[in-house]
Structures are given as C-alpha cells and as structure tokens.
Simulated scan of single mutants.
Amino acid sequence: MGELNFFLGLQIKQTPVETSIHQQKYIKELLKKYDMNEAKTNDTPIGTTTNLDKDESGSPFNDTTYRGKIGSLLYLTASRPDILFSVGLCARFQSCPKESHLKAVKRIMRYLKGTINLVLWYPTSDSFNLKGFADADYARHMVDRKSTSGMAHFLGPCLISWATRKQNSVALSTELSMLQLLHVLPNFFG
C-alpha cells in the first residue's frame, strides 16, 4: 500500500527522524471557498480583549453560512490546537449569529492565512516524559459567566492531546474554592 501521505484531510509526512501532520491543502481550500484568499493576515486567532456576547442589538447574519464556517474550522482543529479556543467561542453563537460573531470567524481565517505553514511535529525520540498543562479563563464568557478551561498533554516534546471546554457550573472565585478546600482538608487528616 505504501507510505501514508494523506488521510481524511490530514497531510502526513514521514522521515526516519520525524513525522509531521498538517492540513495546509484544506486551509487553502477553506480560504478560497469563503473568499479570504486576498485578506490581510492576523498574528492571533482572537484578540486578547475580545469578549463575544449575544450582541442582541447587532445585525443578524445568515445562520446556515455561519454554521458552515464554524463546521469547517472545527474540522481543522484536528491539526491546529492553536485555534481551538477561539473556534469554540465562536461556535457558541450558531443559533443566532450576528455580524460581530462573523467578524471573529473572519479573524480566525485571516490568522490561518498567515500561519498556513504550521504543522504538528513529532521527532523521533526516546523521551517518555508526560507533561500536562491546564488553564481557565475564569468566568470570561459574557453570556452566562461560565469559565472555559483548556488542557494540553505532551509526551516528550510532542503534543499528543488537547481540548477546551466550557465548564458546567459558575465558580464564584478560585480564592473562595481554595479557602473552602483548606478548611475541609484538615478533617481528612485528623
């Protein structure tokens, strides 16, 4: 059958010292499909001060087109963990998208245009040190004040899993939770 080069939209390049996975062809097709080939590029997929909300007074946008763009971007997160948070944030507004939400989606696409050459890189290595990282944005979602948490796991220098998730409950504060924990812990240890 030969060496695997292309699988479900993922392009795979293998050498004796490394393997790389990317979706550059898919990104080019996506940018062409949504007329973003000539767009300027962005350095980040979402602004650090961007707070998307329902934007009830904003101009409505075609929800079918918006869902198509979000679906395309969600498929792309298989090889681009750098856009996972921003795509997930935009996906929350699929039922009633506004122009402000479309603007955020277009920013992600302009970021992709400027970073089309990024790949997941897996060098041949004997390092099996497993490291995990997690973070949360602490009630930054303006609609319901719920936090979004994210995590990434590395095996040696290789990223092996990643995810973001909107939390199910609202936390008053992390300090309160830590204080409550400090009061409960002594009961467990006598």
Rank of each mutant, 00 (worst) to 15 (best):
E3P: 06
N5G: 03
L8N: 03
G9S: 13
Q11K: 06
Q14W: 11
Q14P: 14
P16V: 03
V17I: 12
E18L: 12
K25N: 15
K25W: 13
K28D: 13
L30S: 12
M36G: 07
M36S: 09
N42Y: 10
L52H: 00
K54D: 15
P60R: 00
P60K: 00
F61W: 14
N62P: 05
D63Y: 04
S79Q: 13
R80A: 04
P81I: 13
D82A: 12
D82Y: 03
F85S: 01
F85Q: 01
F93E: 11
Q94K: 12
A104D: 12
R107L: 09
R110Q: 14
L112G: 07
K113T: 00
K113A: 00
N117C: 09
V119G: 00
L120E: 09
T124Q: 07
D126F: 07
F128R: 08
F133M: 05
F133P: 01
D137E: 06
Y138M: 06
V143T: 00
V143Y: 04
R145F: 11
S147T: 02
T148P: 12
M151V: 10
H153V: 13
L155N: 08
G156L: 01
C158V: 03
I160N: 06
W162F: 04
W162T: 10
N168D: 15
L172S: 12
L182P: 04
L182A: 04
L185N: 15
L185T: 14
N187T: 09
N187G: 14
F188Q: 03
G190M: 04
